[in-house]
């Protein structure tokens, strides 16, 4: 059975005819939002994380029909007028990108977290970790992802190491 749904994605209104059995992940990828990656299809890995409203959601577990009337953000929409978002830039600066497959989902999780906590001065490393616990990454060991988020929350001190002695010694 098919049904028409309407939603806003990355600031644009769209209406699509979808099979009611389809996940939002499948529908988004079919319509060219290929930043949304499938790593497991059952909500284990977070590679398909998008924002619905301001909430990170595994789009593989979210039926497309539930998106009717919602506002969706994917990483494709985070670059404005050619400028990377603060979180995208922080991921590059911190070296938080390797194979890149988990990156779009992680960036959306970080974006929601950073926007929510922009003015919160008491965010700890543990808070950052809790917020990202639904996104698996096999390349980075998560260290640089935490640094990227820290950079967004303390932009005036981008290189400050706030957590422990564990920052690498520079090879330079």
């Amino acid at each position: 059975m098919n049904r028409n749904i309407s939603f806003t994605i990355n600031g644009k209104s769209v209406t699509l005819l979808v099979d009611v059995r389809q996940s939002l992940l499948e529908v988004l990828r079919e319509h060219g939002y290929t930043s949304v990656k499938e790593g497991c299809g059952v909500g284990e890995c977070g590679a398909c994380t998008i924002l619905i409203g301001n909430t990170p959601v595994d789009s593989c577990l979210y039926l497309a029909v539930w998106a009717d009337g919602r506002t969706i953000r994917t990483v494709e929409g985070e670059t404005r007028n050619g400028d990377l978002s603060e979180v995208q830039q922080a991921y590059l600066d911190a070296g938080a990108v390797q194979c890149g497959y988990c990156t779009p989902g992680l960036i959306m999780t970080s974006t929601a977290f950073v926007e929510k906590n922009k003015d919160n001065t008491s965010i700890s490393r543990h808070d950052i970790k809790r917020a990202h616990a639904g996104n698996l990454c096999r390349c980075t060991g998560y260290e640089t992802i935490i640094r990227a988020v820290e950079q967004c929350l303390t932009p005036e001190k981008p290189n400050q190491d706030t957590h422990c002695k564990c920052k690498a010694e520079s090879g330079e």
Binding site: Y33, E78, G95, V97, Y101, T103, P104
Partner: peptide, 15 residues
């Protein structure tokens, strides 16, 4: 900065 960095943070990198 890595050569594929921007492609990967913007979701443009195609797998």
């Amino acid at each position: 900065q890595r050569k594929d960095g921007v492609a990967k943070v913007t979701g443009k990198a195609r797998y």
